[in-house]
Design a protein around this nucleic acid. Structure first.
Lengths: 191, 191, 191, 191
DNA sequence: CATGAATGAGGGTTCATTCAT
DNA sequence: CATGAATGAACCCTCATTCAT
């Protein structure tokens, strides 16, 4: 059957994707060579090129996968905002994003840096997702908080910024971030 | 005279620094070669190595210079918070940071990515500054708003996050960021 | 039936040959990969290897086919020399060869370059044909012009050279070649 | 002095050029790698790139050098046509071109193949020279033979073609080319 | 002080070829 | 018959770094 073949194929691509993501999360995009990835997957560079036509191709797949993960987190978060009281949601929201940072967060930053360093295809992809996320957040804020349009606009921009900003501080390992403190402040003053 | 020599020396270093910063802001750290920099300064690669012992050395100097600039902005911002009413300050604060982004913001992100990619010396330097800035902000919030310690802690973390987060969105060119909207929201709900 | 199988087989080989020739005429031998050919024929690389044991094998077949075409042209040309007056023949001869150049001519040059780059098998094949053509020409010249042996020898060498040389100039797109002018000159001075 | 440095530099470039030409004459352009050249010059690949910015760059230099050599031969040949009786000149002309073939002729063919395989810069360069040579030949024919414009046109095209064509046959090692025979035929019938 | 020349390790990429299924 | 997957050697090229002069 074709299916088996396809499965093998997909498994290999999946393997490559996982290893590449791992290595890039660790060392950054430019410091991860295709030789590194191939070695980690235990295949030859030639095989790597059989499955991916270029390094950019791999990065795009990583970006897709990453954005998909983040997207699920955002939707999940919005879902919570709908059904429960805002306090716990926000806490959970922030915590969730931040606690999974060490790997996801690094990939996030590397992709952003890659995107703004001339990789316009990548930037466009990320950009679309950011706009999507903000709109989703804004809509939900409008519905659940019955706030003004101006406020929901500002709030949606701010929430996304806060996430990215906290990711930065977390990766720089500046100070222990007082998540509970922050989230309770947010709930008290914003919602 | 030594002095003259030193001046020339410093001028040259300054030149290198300016050109390197310009090129890195444009193309990123990994996409800027020492040959590029030397050519832009109109000196040979050998001369470049006379003034800087390595590429990392140059990046560290760029980081110092960059952090110094940001530091001045932060202090200036705090100064304003002290003397005037918070509303306009915040507006100005945000606007100021964001409007100068295109070049400074890119350097900022590149340095952060470099820092979290194993360049621990650089990360330490940036980390120290971040802690410093947050403390400064927190102290000022405590004094001027006479708020609780918990709130000032949360607020200081949030403010810094917002800046970084807005820089990200600005560089990704996602959507036109409604600065006035955002700042008026902040003043209304936080101060 | 075997026959059917063989036909299919031959059709496939024919297909491969046509596509390969087309691609090589366009891009040259070294710039045409087996992957390119396989894609153009709409088969897999594996299948390609089922029909041809190596790239050289394909090239040899192309050479055979090409030399066969040229051979027919030469014979046709000689045939004309026999039956008609030399003037029009020569014109036709030259024009015919040159007007079909764009594709055939390129393949011709590529095969010659390949032949003199260490592919001795190929060179031998082409060499045999060249000798054959010259002998045919010489014999015909002897018969129809009743010229001396020395003259027919020289003339046959020259005619072949002129063809190849005009092909070169044509492919280099140097100047518009004045075919009528040339052929009338040849007829006037040589025959 | 700068001169010494420049000399060293030029010597190295000259060295590279000589070795590269030698290797390419032997194996063809595509079969000569930069590693091969570097090894032959006894330098590292990096050094090779210090002097030449790309393989195309080297090929262009080879082409320039080659065309210069051929140009000198053409001019020399024309000079002879002016001062002496045509018979010996022509003999000499042909012999000269053909006898130096083994290396120069191969380079000539390889450059032409490279030129018609999409290297338009190279093709333009060669094209310009071909036009130049033909014009020179034509002018000289007009002056020395006091022939008609049409004849000089045809004759100049033919002469150039014959050279290229004989080069092809010589490199294919078809048959021993009867140079004396050919040249005496040419003199008798054309001049 | 300043430089041009040299280097070597490594980068991404291509491709003819093999082979189990 | 036909294929997709795998390979490894080679290719062109980049670049931070060194060093004699």
């Amino acid at each position: 059957m074709k299916k088996n073949s396809n499965n093998t194929n997909n498994n290999m691509k999946q393997n490559i994707l996982i290893c590449a993501t791992k290595l890039i999360a660790k060392n950054g995009i430019k410091n991860t060579s295709l030789a590194d990835i191939a070695k980690d997957v235990n295949i030859s560079k030639g095989t790597l090129y059989y499955h991916y036509s270029s390094k950019d191709d791999i990065i795009c797949d990583i970006a897709d996968s990453h954005l998909h993960i983040v997207n699920k987190a955002v939707l999940n978060c919005v879902q919570n905002m709908k059904t429960e009281n805002p306090h716990d949601d926000t806490v959970k929201f922030i915590m969730q994003k931040i606690s999974t940072i060490e790997s996801t967060g690094r990939v996030h930053m590397y992709l952003i840096c890659e995107a703004i360093t001339g990789n316009d295809t990548l930037r466009e992809r990320i950009k679309v997702k950011y706009i999507d996320w903000r709109q989703t957040l804004k809509t939900e804020i409008l519905n659940s908080l019955e706030d003004s349009v101006e406020n929901s606009d500002a709030l949606s921009f701010l929430l996304i910024s806060i996430i990215d900003g906290l990711v930065v501080q977390s990766l720089l390992k500046t100070e222990k971030i007082p998540f509970e403190n922050i989230s309770s402040f947010l709930v008290k003053n914003w919602f």
